[in-house]
C-alpha cells in the first residue's frame, strides 16, 4: 500500500458524492491508502482569486501547510477535484519561485501558527496518480468485468491538464491519460477532440447563457460520435453536464440525454463492484441504459482496404508508448518500418 494525503475538496461532500463513494473502494483495491488531511478548508475555487489575491493564496496555503505538518510517512498529496488540484499546484509552484510570493503567504500563515516550504510534497490529481504511480498494468490486473461494448468519451476538462504546473500530463490540450485508463478497462474509447474543453465552470451561476452553450457543445459532439456515456475526472465538470443538461435542453430546444459519470465509477464496475456501492443512481441523467451495454458484442470493424492513392500520415505524437521513468512528458515514437529519422 502506498499512503497519500487526501484532499477531498468541498464538492466531494455534496454534489460529487458519487466520486467520493467510488474512489474509496477503488483506491483500496489498487493499493492506494488515502489519509484525509485533517481540518482542510475550501481551496477558494475560482472565486476567491477574483476578490483578493493574497488571501486567496493564503487560503490554499493553509491546506498545503496542514498537509506538510501531517505528512508523517505519507507520500505526496492527491486531489480528486481538478479545480482543487490546480489551485494546490499553482500556489506550490508560485511559492517555489521564491520571488516574494512565498514570503507573503508564509507571513499570513504565521498568523495562524503555520508555515509551508514549497516543493516538499508532490501534488497529484487522482488520475495521474493512478496512471503513473500505480500503473495501467496494475489496473488491468484487477479488471474482472471488462467494459466491452461501452462507447465512452474521455472528458478530462480544463483544470487537470492546464496549467500543468506540476508537469504531470502528456499534453495540455490533448492528454491521453484518461483514454489509456479507459482502454485498460476494456471500454471503447471514442476520439473526443473536446476532451479538455470547458464545461462552463461557474458560469451556470453567473452567466447561464454562456454555460448552456458550452455544455451543449460538449454533449452535442459526444452524441455526434455515438457516445454511450461521458466520463469525468472533476466534480464540477460532472455537475455542470449532468445537472444543467435539462436546463440547457429547455433553453436551446435540444434533446440531449447524455449520461456522465466519474472514471472511478467505471473502474469500480470493471473491478466487479456493485453499482450501488459506486454511487450509480445519483446522476440526474441516468447512466442505467448505458451501463447495460457492458458486455455487448462489439461489431467488428471492417478493415478498410488501404486506398492506393492515400498519402501516409505523420507519426502521431503520444500514441501511448511511454518512456520509462518520465512523468509522461516524453513520448517515444514507433520506429519500425520507418526510414532513418534524420529529422525526428
Amino acid at each position: 500500500m502506498s499512503k497519500y494525503l487526501y484532499y477531498p475538496g468541498c464538492s466531494m461532500e455534496g454534489s460529487g458524492k458519487a466520486y467520493h463513494n467510488s474512489l474509496m473502494p477503488v483506491c483500496e483495491k489498487i493499493g492506494l491508502e488515502l489519509q484525509e488531511i485533517d481540518d482542510w478548508n475550501c481551496c477558494g475555487a475560482t472565486e476567491y482569486l477574483g476578490i483578493n489575491k493574497i488571501p486567496a493564496y493564503a487560503l490554499i496555503g493553509r491546506n498545503l501547510a496542514l498537509a506538510e505538518a501531517q505528512s508523517n510517512g505519507a507520500q505526496d498529496i492527491v486531489a480528486p477535484c481538478s479545480a482543487c488540484y490546480l489551485n494546490l499546484t499553482k500556489i506550490d509552484s508560485y511559492m517555489a519561485k521564491k520571488n516574494g510570493v512565498d514570503e507573503l503567504i508564509n507571513d499570513a500563515l504565521s498568523a495562524g501558527g503555520l508555515s509551508y516550504e514549497p516543493g516538499q510534497l508532490g501534488i497529484h490529481h487522482l488520475l495521474d496518480l493512478i496512471v503513473y504511480e500505480i500503473g495501467l498494468d496494475t489496473v488491468k490486473e484487477k479488471v474482472v468485468r471488462p467494459l466491452t461494448g461501452l462507447r465512452v468519451a474521455p472528458y478530462i476538462g480544463c483544470m487537470a491538464p492546464r496549467y500543468d504546473y506540476a508537469k504531470r500530463w502528456s499534453d495540455s490540450e490533448h492528454p491521453l491519460e484518461l483514454d489509456w485508463l479507459l482502454g485498460a478497462l476494456g471500454a471503447e474509447v471514442v476520439d473526443y477532440p473536446l476532451k479538455t474543453h470547458c464545461c462552463g465552470g461557474h458560469m451556470p451561476q453567473i452567466g447561464p447563457d454562456t454555460a448552456y452553450e458550452l455544455i451543449h457543445r460538449l454533449v452535442d459532439y459526444a452524441e455526434e460520435v455515438k457516445t454511450d456515456i461521458m466520463v469525468a475526472v472533476c466534480p464540477m465538470c460532472q455537475m455542470n453536464i449532468d445537472a444543467y443538461q435539462n436546463e440547457t435542453n429547455q433553453h436551446l430546444g435540444t434533446k440531449h440525454k447524455m449520461p456522465i459519470v466519474f472514471f472511478t465509477q467505471l473502474m469500480g464496475l470493471a473491478f466487479g463492484m456493485r453499482e450501488r456501492d459506486l454511487g450509480f443512481g445519483s446522476e440526474l441523467v441516468s447512466a442505467k441504459e448505458a451501463i447495460q451495454k457492458i458486455g455487448s458484442e462489439v461489431p467488428k470493424k471492417k478493415r478498410k482496404k488501404k486506398d492506393k492513392f492515400a498519402l501516409p500520415m505523420p507519426h502521431p505524437l503520444g500514441n501511448g508508448i511511454l518512456k520509462n521513468g518520465t512523468n509522461g512528458k516524453e513520448l517515444i515514437l514507433p520506429t519500425e518500418g520507418r526510414a532513418r529519422g534524420g529529422r525526428a
Binding site: 454534489s15 478548508n41 483578493n52 488571501p55 487560503l59 499570513a108 495562524g112 501558527g113
Partner: peptide, 25 residues
C-alpha cells in the same frame, strides 16, 4: 439524490483560518 447538504459544515480551525486571512488582507 443526497447531492446537496442541508447544513453547512464548519471546520474546527475557523478562527485560525480567519487569523490567516486577516493577515493576508
Amino acid at each position: 439524490k443526497k447531492r446537496l447538504n442541508l447544513k453547512p459544515k464548519k471546520i474546527q480551525g475557523i478562527k485560525q483560518l480567519n487569523a490567516i486571512l486577516d493577515r493576508a488582507k
